[in-house]
Design a protein around this nucleic acid. Structure first.
Length: 573
RNA sequence: UGUCCCAUGGUGUAAUUGGCAACACAUCUGAUUUUGGUUCAGAAGAGUCUAGGUUCGAGCCCUAGUGGGACAACCA
């Protein structure tokens, strides 16, 4: 009795309070203890050196989602501390992708480069405290002295030899462009014997005589990531600084740098979570770039790419991606998410939204021998059975039609209930037809044409009469318009191409990831289809108008096929 | 020969004071269906990496081990 009462109490609690991920737990604890005056301020801080992918989408949804959930704020900040790799082109695409996902940042986008002055002043302060010094050694010498994770490093000759005044003077002259690139760096004086490599006197500044896309020629010394990120967080009033697991070892340094500059009570805290891995694809920017450069795909927005721009072109909706980020959760263990989940979610979304249309991908001609030659009648069909408000439309029906090649079989196997000699099927929204005859290429065995009769008593609508087992999609041969359809399959044929030791992911590239069908027949209403317009091709899948599509040449991308239980039954041994 | 992180059905994530291991995807049945879609009903699948310890009671706390991952760019 006592026990069951306890149980009920817990169940009620669970119902009213859904479980939180570990970051939400941290935030709610902070809220409870009134840390940060009960504010939540997050940020999404990409480096503008490439295109965003679905792994970034996870981070975007996390950071912006938390801002929304806790009525806080979220900044968009470009981590632009390396002028060599960064370009404005990438900034534009990042802004577009974040907006497309449906998020808005508070105020203007921020830039780490906006803080270069402040960073410089703080660096001077740290030198004055005797906790930073100018090192004249080469990159190779510094690397050599750094030691290894298992062996302590050695201190630089310059570490203790130079006075504060000398360091200050050298640093100022570094800033003024007196020294050659690579000849001097500013280093934090921490601990060359630390078991954490990042604490072995990390670099704060290097000399780079390169123009920056925002600051131009103003600076020739640029701060390193570690000496910019936490300070940017601090400047912006970020409370919860979320990043991926590989920065875990940076956290002591993040904190050390904050120790040097923070005076009040407030300071941001870094928390790490596991990056997203998705089955049958890769997520590394470097490897993705390689796919583009080696021509395995046609650019960053190739619909096979896991980039946001690729997914958009493929026909994914922002909602489906946000749902995905929600469903996969946030934790600290390495993971490979099944791409089936992503596909399930885009189907779920498109099922509600996408208009159904008739499109025959691999046409097979059907002639209705008892249908008048010149007659074209219009049949009415529903636009979306999931949403009556989407209404109906008219479809032209005629003596000569196209059906899907795979919907006819000369010698059908068990459980095949499509068209076959002597069999009947319904043409969706039209009539029941019966196969009377067919023409076959005797050499290749290919079916060339099918002859049927139609039953005028069976027109779709109330009182359509008898039922048959199969229903096929079709188009009128006279009225159909041509289209190109691009069928995409997974880019790799291994579920974890990047996770295989001693094997390059490219070894697992799927040679059949793209199939182009150029002789597809689609219903005439599709002439008006606009780029990125989304449709369900009845019985086949969801398709999206490619941006390359024109009224003269329609091009559709297959987002994802419909679930296909027949394929499973058919392929069973 | 180091430091840090991680370990729950096939996959991913939960289990909020230490109290019957839950949800989603995937898989399999059946029903409905003018999409072999959708929807609905149901089934199977883990005893929580291992060994000890604390406890009336451990997925949860402690110790050790095992396995996986991160760290040695003037990249982020």
């Amino acid at each position: 009795m006592n026990k069951s009462g306890k149980k009920t109490g817990k169940e009620e609690k669970n119902r009213s309070k859904p479980s939180l991920n570990f970051i939400e737990n941290i935030i709610e604890d902070d809220l409870k203890t009134n840390k940060y005056e009960s504010k939540v301020h997050t940020r999404f801080p990409p480096e503008p050196n490439g295109y965003l992918h679905i792994g970034h989408a996870k981070s975007i949804c996390l950071n912006f989602g938390l801002g929304l959930k806790y009525k806080g704020k979220t900044n968009l900040r470009f981590d632009d501390t390396n002028p060599i790799k960064e370009e404005i082109e990438y900034i534009d695409s990042i802004l577009e992708d974040v907006r497309w996902l449906g998020f808005d940042w508070v105020g203007e986008p921020r830039y780490a480069s906006d803080y270069f002055n402040q960073l410089y002043e703080w660096a001077v302060k740290i030198i004055k405290k005797g906790k930073a010094y100018v090192d004249d050694q080469t990159a190779a010498e510094i690397a050599k002295q750094k030691g290894t994770p298992t062996k302590p490093g050695q201190e630089s000759l310059y570490r203790n030899r130079r006075s504060v005044e000398e360091n200050l003077d050298l640093f100022e002259r570094m800033k003024n462009g007196v020294f050659e690139e690579g000849s001097k760096v500013l280093r934090a004086k921490i601990d060359m014997a630390s078991p954490n490599m990042h604490l072995r006197d990390p670099l704060m500044y290097r000399i780079l005589k390169k123009p920056h896309h925002r600051t131009g020629d103003k600076w020739c010394i640029y701060p390193m990531y570690d000496w910019a990120h936490g300070q940017s967080d601090f400047i912006e009033g970020i409370t919860h600084s979320l990043c991926t697991l590989e920065f875990e070892v940076h956290r002591p340094l993040y904190d050390w740098f904050l120790d040097q500059i923070v005076e009040g009570d407030y300071r941001p805290v870094q928390t790490e979570f596991a990056r997203l891995n998705l089955s049958y694809t890769i997520m590394s920017k470097r490897k993705l770039l390689e796919l583009v450069e080696e021509g395995h795909v046609n650019g960053w927005d190739d619909p096979r790419m896991p980039t946001i721009s690729g997914l958009r072109r493929r026909g994914y909706t922002p909602e489906s991606i946000r749902n995905f980020a929600d469903k996969i959760g946030v934790a600290k263990r390495d993971n490979v998410i099944d791409v089936d989940l992503l596909e399930h979610l885009v189907r779920e979304d498109l099922n509600k939204k996408a208009q159904r249309v008739m499109a025959v991908l691999r046409p097979l001609k059907v002639t209705l021998t008892n249908y008048p030659e010149d007659k074209i009648e219009e049949v009415e069909t529903i636009n979306n059975p999931e949403d009556e408000s989407m209404g109906t439309r008219k479809l032209p029906f005629s003596r000569e039609l196209y059906i899907e090649h795979a919907d006819f079989m000369e010698t059908p196997p068990n459980k095949f209930f499509r068209l076959a000699p002597g069999r009947e099927v319904r043409l969706k929204s039209a009539y029941i037809i019966k196969c009377e005859d067919y023409v076959k290429d005797e050499k290749t065995g290919e079916i060339l044409e099918v002859f049927c009769t139609y039953d005028p008593e069976t027109k779709s609508g109330p009182g359509a009469g008898r039922k048959v087992k199969g229903t096929l999609h079709w188009v009128s041969a006279q009225r159909a318009i041509n289209a190109e359809v691009r069928l995409y399959d997974r880019l790799f044929n291994h579920p974890d191409p990047a996770g295989q030791k001693n094997q390059n992911s490219n070894e697992f590239l799927n040679p059949n990831s793209l199939e182009i069908l150029s002789n597809c027949k689609v219903e005439p209403s599709l002439k008006m289809a606009k780029p990125l317009g989304k449709f369900q091709f009845q019985r086949q899948g969801y398709f999206c108008v490619d941006p390359d599509s024109t009224t003269e040449k329609l091009i559709f991308n297959r987002t994802v096929p419909l679930r296909d239980t027949w394929a499973k039954i058919k392929d069973r041994p």
